[in-house]
Amino acid sequence: MLKKKPAACFVDNKYCPGCGHGIINRLVAEVLEEMGIYEESIGAIAVGCASLMPETFAVDCIQAQHGRAAAVAAGIKRCRPDKTVFTYQGDGDALAIGFSETMYSAIRNENITVIFVNNSNFGMTGGQMAPTTLENQKTTTTPRGRNIAETGDPLNVINMMKDLNTAYIARGSLTNNANIMKTKKYIRNAFEAQQNSEGFSFIEILSPCTTNWKMDPIKAMEHIEKNVTPVYELGVFVERGEKNA
């Protein structure tokens, strides 16, 4: 089986060692290339570590304001319905600052694809608590661990979205080869749903943040398996054709 990095990943990425963004960038590029739409796709990129993507990713991208990537993508798609439009966002961006934009894109069933990278903190700004931070997880703003009596439960956005009228919703992870291949399949399904004008597709990906979790990369993956996956269950939550058939 011959393997070569996709043409869109034309230079080395700038993420920390062991960061999951590199794998997800490659999966998105592979899917766009395999579908033959890599030159006519447009990405709306979030602020945060996700914003390092356009510098090393040879697909047309727009840097959206903080949290507004889903709104920007919806605007692009309405103006240019012939293009494949996706957002690439982290959890601080999509669920804290841009929660309204993300949810209302789902509520309006906009025909866009949201790639949402969940690493359970604000990575680029130094590891502050995000809505997805787990109970008792230590971050720079919760040095004794997240107290859910004060801050509420970790936000499982797919639980909120799955009852809406959307095209495809799935959650994958990057902990091993099998999970990475499944995640790639989810991304492919999401883009295919958009191409068939089925509506809003949302892929959440559980990804390690080795620097801010202060773990070595292998331990970070084990942490996802052991502690993150039980809170954020993997799988497909809305199948294609289930709601818009």
Binding site: M1, L2, K3, K4, K5, C9, D12, N13, Y15, P17, G18, C19, G20, H21, G22, I23, R26, L174, N176, N177, I180, M181
Partner: peptide, 30 residues
């Protein structure tokens, strides 16, 4: 960084290293 090396005698070119690598280090060629 101390970089990775391969023992070609043991490698079956299954491609799993390519799939799990975040930094596009691996390539499988003819």
């Amino acid at each position: 960084y101390p970089y990775v090396s391969v023992d070609h005698e043991k490698c079956t070119t299954c491609g799993i290293c390519y799939n799990v690598c975040p930094d596009y280090v691996f390539e499988i060629q003819e």
